[in-house]
């Protein structure tokens, strides 16, 4: 069970790192941000799996903060460029 969960966490981390390629290559800022969003969700998933391994509730609190705040950068981007367009 623990080995299995460890493997799943490893696979999720590998998937997260693969997503970085899109962040670096872009080319549109939207694509980079979207990739960042996916990486945030993947980090939440990793935390859930690690919680399954250790059972510490604090992991869930960290995951909760990630889940809420992953959107902030994206919302900042969209709102700021709307500001620019509205001028």
């Amino acid at each position: 069970m623990n080995t299995y969960l460890g493997l799943v966490a490893l696979v999720l981390l590998a998937s997260l790192l693969a997503g970085l390629v899109r962040v670096i290559r872009g080319p549109a800022p939207e694509a980079r941000l979207m990739a960042g969003q996916l990486l945030g969700t993947t980090a939440v998933a990793i935390l859930l799996v690690l919680w399954g391994l250790t059972g510490q509730s604090a992991f869930l609190d960290v995951a909760m903060v990630f889940a809420i705040l992953a959107a902030v950068a994206l919302i900042a981007f969209v709102a700021l460029s709307n500001q620019g367009a509205g001028r």
Binding site: L20, V23, I24, G26, P29, R32, L33, A35, G36, L39, G40, A43, F66, A73
Partner: peptide, 12 residues
């Protein structure tokens, strides 16, 4: 822009 997104991922 990539720099900033990478920085956010670094924090993650």
């Amino acid at each position: 822009f990539a720099m900033i997104v990478l920085f956010v991922v670094f924090g993650l």
